[in-house]
């Protein structure tokens, strides 16, 4: 299966990426290659293999409901491109 330009357009929209026509062509090629590579797995016969939900055979990893210190606000906001005294600031979100 190869990806169409429309598939890539849709994924870029969902990912909030604006691609130029040129980028769209490049991405469609590259993503098709990636999907094609992974698709080789379909050649394996998995009829009697139980599906896995996780790559590691590990279950029931829990932590106790006990508080641990949080980051200070300044640490929490340290990487924000834009902030004020209390909050992250982002371009206005419409549509609520």
């Amino acid at each position: 299966m190869s990806l169409s330009q429309d598939d890539v357009k849709k994924v870029s929209l969902l990912s909030r990426l604006l691609l130029t026509e040129e980028e769209l062509t490049t991405m469609t090629e590259q993503m098709s290659d990636i999907v094609g590579y992974v698709e080789q797995l379909n050649e394996l016969d998995t009829t009697d293999v139980e599906p896995m939900a996780h790559a590691v055979e590990q279950f029931n990893v829990f932590a106790a409901d006990e508080r641990a210190p949080s980051l200070s606000r300044d640490e929490a906001l340290a990487n924000a491109p834009k902030r004020d005294d209390e909050c992250f600031r982002v371009p206005a979100v419409l549509g609520e």
């Binding site: 641990a68 949080s70 606000r73 929490a76």
Partner: peptide
């Protein structure tokens, strides 16, 4: 393990996981 206490000042109950 950040607290879920309601009404805390903004952005004082976060850690690398929830950020």
């Amino acid at each position: 393990r950040c607290s879920t206490q309601y009404g805390a000042p903004p952005n004082t109950q976060t850690c690398p996981v929830c950020l």
